[in-house]
């Protein structure tokens, strides 16, 4: 019903010229210098509630997502027709062509143990590859989920739900402002996507097929080899602890904690490829942690998670202490346990 109504409305509006909803991805809007007022303006969805992707807009997911207060994340990618992203090694984000849009909608249900039941869209973040680089735009959904409006300053949302462990939570959920989007997506002087690396995409996604194969078959992706390494699934307890913990730090921390990131001055670099213990925090004194260090003196004290500043900051939800400092109001208990176990098993001798 809602879809039908929206479609009619779209037809009506298109007659007025000014606010027409495009029938498919609208390159003029996508490549415009600034953001569109509403998500619908881009034509990425056929319906106002953004449940029906337009032709060429493909749902996907990541093997390991960033923790975001248990939100369900609905990811889609649009690569302009006739163009393709290039694979450039599993460690790297795919090289997406100009005109690409990465769409991520954050949704919550009353009970996140059954996230599809009564799900509400709250915010949608766009990363658009403009002619001069990537731009990040936040959109916030209205109560009726009929419109998501551009919200450069972000928003605070009062959310109450039952978390996946069955615990009721009430949070001030932060929709990041546009600059905060950049804080995490910074790569030197530019901004860049974080998640869609070959190694983090190569599995069966929401469409039920291997995403790398599927994107290649669709002509959206070129150059992916038949076989390459994929990242360890953080939640797969059958995998080695070290691989899982490092994969967790890679997706949750390394976008800032790397040489080109927002936390570069810390000298604490947490990417998958880092191999120097001190750069990973082993025996490393904090640089600018302030009270974020708690009572600890080093980022990681092998064998002693409770003496490790890394655990202390992950296990806090307080501004000024909590890490990551953006993007969550809650503690990721599973992540804390994983990193705690990893540090516990570290060889004390180093």
């Amino acid at each position: 019903m809602r879809v039908a109504l929206a479609a009619c409305l779209g037809l009506l509006l298109s007659a007025c010229g000014q606010q027409q909803v495009p029938a498919g991805p609208d390159m003029e809007t996508i490549l415009a210098a600034g953001p569109a007022e509403t998500l619908a303006d881009y034509g990425l969805f056929a319906d106002a509630s953004a449940r029906q992707p337009s032709a060429g807009v493909v749902p996907y997911d990541l093997i390991n997502p960033l923790f975001s207060d248990h939100a369900s994340k609905h990811r889609l990618v649009y690569v302009p027709e006739g163009e393709a992203a290039a694979y450039r090694g599993g460690e790297e984000v795919l090289d997406f062509p100009v005109g690409t849009v990465l769409i991520k909608t954050f949704a919550f249900a009353p009970d996140m143990r059954t996230p599809a039941e009564g799900e509400r869209y709250r915010e949608t973040r766009l990363l658009i590859h403009k002619a001069d680089g990537w731009a990040a735009y936040p959109y916030v959904w209205n109560e009726g989920e009929t419109e998501a409006r551009y919200a450069p300053a972000g928003a605070w949302l009062d959310l109450a739900y039952t978390d996946p462990s069955g615990t009721p939570v009430e949070i001030d959920y932060r929709v990041p402002n546009q600059n905060q989007c950049k804080t995490c997506h910074q790569l030197g002087d530019a901004i860049a996507p974080i998640g869609p690396k070959g190694r983090n995409l190569s599995h069966e996604g929401p469409l039920g097929v291997d995403q790398i194969d599927d994107w290649t078959a669709r002509g959206m992706l070129t150059g992916a080899p038949v076989s390459f390494d994929v990242v360890a699934d953080v939640h797969d307890a059958s995998l080695p602890l070290d691989a899982r913990a490092r994969a967790y730090l890679d997706i949750n921390c390394a976008h800032c904690h790397r040489a080109e990131g927002s936390a570069s001055n810390s000298g604490l670099w947490l990417g998958w490829e880092v191999d120097e213990p001190v750069k990973l925090g082993v025996g490393k004194h904090p640089t600018a942690a302030g009270r974020g260090s708690g009572s600890g003196t080093v980022v990681i004290e092998p064998g002693l998670p409770d003496a490790s500043i890394m655990v202390y900051r992950m296990d806090s939800s307080e501004a000024g202490v909590a890490m990551p400092e953006l993007g969550r109001a809650l503690i990721d208990d599973e992540g804390v346990e994983l990193v705690r176990a990893w540090i516990s098993e570290m060889d004390v001798a180093g």
Partner: peptide, 23 residues
């Protein structure tokens, strides 16, 4: 998956990153 502790790959450098622009 690759063993995390021994994989030494070039850090994700800014140079040569085709997606970069002066956004």
């Amino acid at each position: 998956f690759a063993a995390a502790s021994v994989t030494v790959l070039a850090a994700c450098g800014g140079a040569g990153d085709g997606s970069e622009g002066n956004a």
